[in-house]
């Protein structure tokens, strides 16, 4: 596993004259084999930071380092997206979708099915699901497929972007448990993004709080949650507590 480091990362949308800075000089380190939870309200720049990391959005400043080196063009990062209903190609079976994400040439033709089965079992799905289309699966099952798909790419770092927020509360728990299990078993380095502090607390070793494109507070999960320094963190914590009541 690898360490992911954001150094003074900035992302700007729009033209030079009429633009909007969404991520502004962010420094953040995701240590090898740990989970960093990134929290913040909608529009705080969390998802933009994640997309910049996997190369879907260009940086306007700073750099992203993997084990101290700039990210290669074919980045070894994988991402699980928010909406499990639209993130899988509706015309491709679950098995084909996962198989497509396997590193090319890494598996012989006859070994691919076995690897797809292994990945499906890793996310608690039966091997016979491989022949189904996404439409035949529930939201929770699709998100498991999305996770298996991301793991198929043998990522150095896994980025989970609001992966539970499109799911029913009852299913959120099972998916979170699964993420924790898989992370622990594979010693994954993971950036876990959510607007929900309760969810982040459940899976993260470190918590970073983002507001208006900046990281306003970052530290061990327990410290941040028991003794928040920044007013915005306190506000989020109060919101999470009132939500639980």
């Amino acid at each position: 596993m690898s360490e992911l480091r954001f150094e003074e990362v900035s992302v700007r949308y729009g033209t030079r004259r009429r633009g909007h800075t969404v991520v502004d000089g962010v420094n953040l380190t995701v240590a090898s084999g740990t989970v960093v939870g990134l929290v913040g309200e909608s529009g705080s720049g969390k998802s933009t930071l994640a997309r910049a990391a996997v190369g879907l959005i260009p940086l306007s400043g700073g750099q992203i380092l993997l084990d101290g080196r700039p990210l290669p063009k074919r980045t070894p990062l994988q991402m699980v997206f928010q909406d499990p209903y639209s993130s899988l190609d509706p015309r491709m079976t679950v098995g084909a979708s996962i198989a497509e994400a396997l590193p090319r040439g890494a598996f012989a033709r006859n070994a691919i099915a076995a690897e797809v089965t292994r990945l499906l079992e890793l996310v608690d799905l039966a091997a016979d699901r491989a022949g189904l289309y996404p439409a035949a699966l529930s939201g929770g099952q699709r998100q498991r497929v999305a996770l298996a798909r991301a793991l198929a790419g043998r990522p150095a770092v896994l980025i989970a972007d609001e992966i539970t927020s499109a799911l029913d509360v009852s299913i959120q728990g099972t998916v979170l448990n699964l993420v924790r299990q898989v992370q622990a078993r594979m010693r994954l380095t993971m950036l876990f993004i959510s607007h929900d502090l309760a969810v982040v607390r459940y899976v993260s070793d470190t918590v970073a709080v983002m507001q208006g494109g900046h990281i306003v507070e970052c530290g061990p999960a327990d410290d941040i949650l028991s003794n928040p320094q920044h007013p915005y963190t306190r506000q989020l914590l109060a919101a999470a507590r009132s939500g639980q009541r």
């Binding site: 879907l56 997206f81 639209s86 993130s87 899988l88 190609d89 497509e100 798909r149 991301a150 790419g153």
Partner: peptide, 9 residues
């Protein structure tokens, strides 16, 4: 989104 997934692959 699945095109984004394909790019992420």
């Amino acid at each position: 989104d699945y095109i984004r997934t394909a790019r992420a692959k």
